[in-house]
């Protein structure tokens, strides 16, 4: 079975359907949910449903873990807030930390790794100085990597806190500067909404657009099922006529309409998200994305090596122009050889 990712998709979409699973089916589901970092989410979805005792113990453990991650993420966000207390610009939380800080469904049970924040590009030196002063340190000591981040990326080189061992990614926009779309970062910051603690989150449309950009305009779709679940939850949370109109307008403004449309379509296709008819036009390439998203076997291993390779190459293609890609791969190869 090489499309076993569907067992996870089905369980998230229709939790009561897990009543039909045998022990081998449960084993595959739990293993794949863990490797896709969706076990905490699955545990939330299966709350209150009858499951075998062994499964119940595993799901309880996943809930403890999710609560720990929520707590640490909020604590880490507060550490950043205190480090940047003298900075007068907006500090915008992104991804998982934003979802839990704003109390959104997308944050329920969600795995959260690094802290992602966004600030105005012109303020990066000030923010960088404040974070270094508060105990964050550079992870990479490689001059090429450092210069690469500063010249071409949408974020500072990653920083790690020397005592808490937690990473922070400081963004100034949502895509690498070498990618073809040029999102309007200033508009994102301008429309970000203030939380009670003085930190900000992106507006609903921008939050969804960032998630879609991350999924379909940047990476190689690793962790894609989780990203797509975020998108499903965000749509579910906000969808009304005003939201859909704003989403289309805003996505066009950020030059990201195609990835946003794809995210909405695939969320509908895999997770059964309710979406308006005009958003349902199926694209002939969508099936390759589905194939890549669910390529797992019941041991949690990635399958479809060729499809994965194509998406890996695509991720670099999207990130940079051909000559630059060639130079980048050359430098990386020289260093690894």
């Amino acid at each position: 079975m090489t499309h076993d990712g569907m067992i996870l998709v089905d369980a998230l979409r229709d939790p009561s359907g897990t009543a039909r699973l045998d022990p081998a089916g449960w084993t595959a589901l739990l293993t794949i949910a863990r490797v896709e970092q969706l076990l905490g989410t699955l545990a939330r979805r299966l709350s209150g449903l009858p499951v075998p005792d062994a499964v119940s113990d595993i799901l309880a453990e996943a809930r403890v873990n999710a609560e720990y991650q929520r707590r640490s993420a909020l604590w880490e966000a507060d550490c950043a807030r205190r480090a940047l207390v003298d900075y007068s610009g907006k500090v915008v939380l992104m991804k998982g930390t934003a979802y839990v800080a704003a109390g959104l469904k997308a944050g329920e049970g969600r795995h959260i790794g690094d802290l992602d924040i966004m600030v105005a590009q012109c303020d990066l030196p000030q923010v960088e100085t404040a974070l270094l002063k508060a105990g964050w340190e550079w992870v990479k000591d490689d001059a090429y990597d450092d210069a690469y981040y500063r010249d071409h990326m949408h974020e500072l080189p990653p920083l790690i806190h020397k005592e808490r061992d937690r990473m922070i990614d400081v963004h100034h926009t949502i895509l690498p500067l070498t990618a073809r779309p040029r999102p309007d970062a200033a508009a994102m910051l301008a429309d970000a909404a203030c939380l009670a603690n003085g930190l900000y989150v992106l507006s609903p449309a921008d939050m969804l657009i960032h998630s879609a950009a991350h999924l379909f305009a940047d990476g190689e779709l690793d962790g894609g099922l989780r990203n797509l679940w975020d998108i499903h939850c965000l749509i579910d949370e906000w969808a009304d006529d005003v939201f859909w109109a704003e989403l289309a307008r805003r996505a066009a403004q950020h030059q990201l309409l195609a990835p946003v449309e794809r995210a909405v379509r695939l969320s509908h296709r895999l997770y059964g998200t309710e979406i308006p008819d005009p958003w349902r036009r199926w694209h002939r390439q969508d099936k390759h994305y589905v194939r890549r998203l669910i390529a797992r076997d019941n041991w949690g291993r990635g399958t479809h090596k060729f499809t994965r390779l194509i998406f890996y190459i695509r991720s670099h293609w999207l990130r940079m122009p051909p000559m630059m890609l060639a130079r980048h791969l050359w430098v990386k190869w020289r260093k690894s050889a």
Partner: peptide, 10 residues
């Protein structure tokens, strides 16, 4: 021998 394992190792 358990029916549903807690952890998978490869």
């Amino acid at each position: 021998v358990p029916a549903i394992p807690d952890y998978t190792v490869r």
